[in-house]
Write a protein that binds this DNA or RNA. Sequence first.
DNA 1: TCTGTTTGATTTAAATTAACACAAACCCCG
DNA 2: CGGGGTTTGTGTTAATTTAAATCAAACAGA
Lengths: 226, 226
Amino acid sequence: MLESKTHEVTVDIVIFTIRKKKLEVLLIQRGQEPYKDKWAIPGGFVRLSENLDEAAKRVLYEKTHVKDVYLEQLYTFGDPYRYPNARVITVSYFALIRSDDLKLESEQGLNIQQINWHSIYSLPELAFDHKDILSVAIRRLRERLEYTPIAHQLLPKKFTLTQLQKTYEVILNTDLDKRNFRKKMISLGILNEYEEFTKASSKRPARLYDFNEETISSQSGFVADN
Amino acid sequence: MLESKTHEVTVDIVIFTIRKKKLEVLLIQRGQEPYKDKWAIPGGFVRLSENLDEAAKRVLYEKTHVKDVYLEQLYTFGDPYRYPNARVITVSYFALIRSDDLKLESEQGLNIQQINWHSIYSLPELAFDHKDILSVAIRRLRERLEYTPIAHQLLPKKFTLTQLQKTYEVILNTDLDKRNFRKKMISLGILNEYEEFTKASSKRPARLYDFNEETISSQSGFVADN
DNA sequence: TCTGTTTGATTTAAATTAACACAAACCCCG
DNA sequence: CGGGGTTTGTGTTAATTTAAATCAAACAGA
């Protein structure tokens, strides 16, 4: 039934960003079988010497050359048939990065054709069980957003409340009331307010904020700082 | 560094019950090294032919001979040093069973000395990283209890509101207001009310309830029915 | 200085949560 | 058979949280 005699273990990483006011995910088009030409979540084998978080961090770095990334383990998929002709168990993660931190050099190796952002609302056909992984990831991301200051991983160090709100709206795919949103955020006491304002636009300047340190460090998951 | 050349994959199952008005967990005392005589969460290797949920279900059945059990995947632990002299990655699960469904025949094999319930508040020293696994399990159980009708897994088919409340109190380790609790449960619309009452005690009889079917089947996790 | 666009603030109603006490039902026992 | 002991069952009010809705102020550019 299965050719392999042992389990192989991989990590697959659902990498989210916000781009063009949409929630997008990084996908790689496969250059070889199985699922040649199909798109897949970035992943790689776990080495015997590293733990799972380290493996995720390494794979993420190999694919994106990005550091300081929020990573959180999601769920482990191990159907015997999820990967043809081998028993590959994958531990899935999700990551959040600022899209401008990443220039897609489209590493044209043997195994990879293209690497690109895709809106989660218009996805190509995915390889393996990656659709399931992605759906778990989206659910978890939304859950985290509601209860943790995870959004700061997607924003510049200092940001306006409007930027923050847009981030929430894009991820949750809803509109939020501006006044209530601001009231809520400020009452949470997790933001620092600055005397700096945005400028260089023909609109009223907006005050800048950031998340305070304690808040950030108390969030679950970990930051892959290499 | 590590002797093995491949990953081995196990499932470890945190099995909860309520017994003597306490939240308890099933532990097995190890009969051999490593961690001989220490207590461990029941676990076993994942076979190549089965998926992770099936493995968890099988291991659970082998250890407890109990069917119809709620099982949910928790988290995957894969530190290279978590298991001496081998690379063992474990996918943890938690399970809920009614303690009277289980008679502990204390299977006295080579590997196992004793199998017993332990209050989560007075645990012996645990093998491997099982303390971490258990702490994840407790957190998840409490989280589930707040948002899902998971408690029915620990109760007889029909139960009184007082029994239900005690279940919540034991798991959450808090006292709850009787009137508010009842009001809340009833307003959730997930209970069926019967014209049956408890009897045979020198107190006022209590009305019996159960969870309605749709509610139960919509809960996350799965029921290992064999 | 006028226009266009975005920021920033507050009040009110609705819904949810928290706090709190006593009568009713039953069995047992004298 | 009446009284004591114990557990069930119930409703109101205050406090908090959430939801909804509007308009003046700040700036750049024309």
